[in-house]
Computed example of a mutant assay.
Amino acid sequence: MDTHDIVTHIKNNDSPAVLASLIGVEGHSYRKAGAVMLFFEGGVIGSLSPGCLESDLQLRTNEIWASGQPEVVEYDMLSPDDFSWGEAVGCGGKIKVVLEPVQGELRETLIEANERMAAGENLVLIRELTPEGYSYRLEAGAFITKNTDSPVFSTLLVPKPRLVIFGGGHDAEPIAALAARVGFRLAVADWREGSLQNDFPGAGRVVCPPAEAAVRLGIGQGDYVLICSHQFQRDRQFLESVIPVEPHYIGIIGSSARINLLLEGLEAPSSLHAPVGISIGGEGPEEIAVSIVAEMIQIRRAGARKLPKGVDRVESSRHISGSRTKQKDGSIQGFSEAVAGDFPRERRAQ
């Protein structure tokens, strides 16, 4: 979800920034081609490695910004004999990274992307090398397609998944806070205006009857929904309105007996998690929030509609590769040479 934070930062800040994109991978790599990170004064957003590349990339950013020209750097970590960088845990391949100053057409394109992503749109940022330099365009979609007729590379820009909370009580506050910290956008709906005065930083807020909330918030198939108003009839009305929309995740807080009553006469969708949360024996609002948000993370990472509680189908998601290969210095290539695939011999950074 780094791309959403990156385009938001660019929209809200006009200070110098350099975008680093992973455009080629040979062998093992911590991130796949298309991954991005942003360097700016005072910080970074995202990562391309477990930490073995970022320092070197950051050293190059001032020169990139000053020149106004992109540059491609290649890192070869296939050899186990180079100890110059120390252990590169999680790395063991050859990768290419392009560094681009965020200015001019690129900045304008990313600002447009921010506006479209805020509306929940998946986008592909396509860069194509022309005789005049890079051209940029955005295409709607959730997959990267390669243009084989010209040197291009693409980055998938995916908005953060949205968590819609129905019921703005105090027990929803720690859930909202934790969900926001791990990469969810927030929206809160309630029929009581006073409930929406609680602490839901950055959340969109809608006061309306429960049956209208799904339409008012534009709930769609990519959304996560949590029902926690603790008012039986209103929870039922909201549930009836949201099931036909088929959100990616529906969680209901409450006992099994109460949930059975809520579902009486309704066909439970495969995305329903009730009672909500992974069973960790949590007590109190904060621990229950951990249980609920952990389940949403599990669903998000596994990309599945329904998983047994506590089971993760992505076998490698809890482990960082322990590759013991060592990293070589990043070699700088001419930009047009690298994108076109005409790679020169390595030149060592000093």
Rank of each mutant, 00 (worst) to 15 (best):
S84R: 15
S29L: 00
V215M: 09
G322A: 15
L38F: 00
Q197C: 04
Y75W: 14
G133Y: 13
I243P: 01
Q231K: 12
F232E: 07
V44Y: 03
G86R: 08
A113Y: 00
I111Y: 13
H28V: 07
Y136S: 08
T325D: 05
K160M: 05
F335G: 07
I227Y: 09
L59Q: 15
V215G: 14
E283F: 01
G68H: 14
G43I: 07
S154Y: 05
D329K: 13
L262S: 01
D2H: 05
Q103C: 11
H248R: 13
Q103P: 08
I252W: 14
I144Y: 11
G220R: 15
G218M: 09
H248M: 08
I332K: 09
P70M: 03
R305C: 08
E286V: 12
S150E: 09
S336W: 02
S15N: 11
L217S: 01
E240A: 06
R348F: 09
M77V: 06
A177Q: 15
E41Q: 06
E139A: 11
R205T: 13
G34M: 12
V97R: 13
Q197L: 12
G169Y: 09
G120D: 11
S154Q: 06
H319T: 03
I23W: 12
I259V: 01
A66L: 12
N198Y: 06
V206R: 14
D342Q: 14
P209A: 04
V7P: 05
Y249P: 01
A213S: 06
A119M: 03
S21F: 14
D342F: 14
A203H: 04
A177S: 15
A177V: 06
N114G: 10
I45S: 05
T130F: 00
P269M: 00
E115V: 02
G90C: 06
D149I: 02
I288H: 07
I95E: 10
R116N: 08
W85I: 02
M117P: 00
L22F: 07
L226T: 03
G303P: 03
V188Y: 08
G218A: 01
G92L: 08
A349F: 10
E121N: 07
G202E: 14
R236Q: 09
G265M: 07
D329E: 15
G284S: 02
L217T: 11
Y30V: 02
E26M: 02
A189E: 02
G168S: 09
L138Y: 00
K32F: 06
C228F: 12
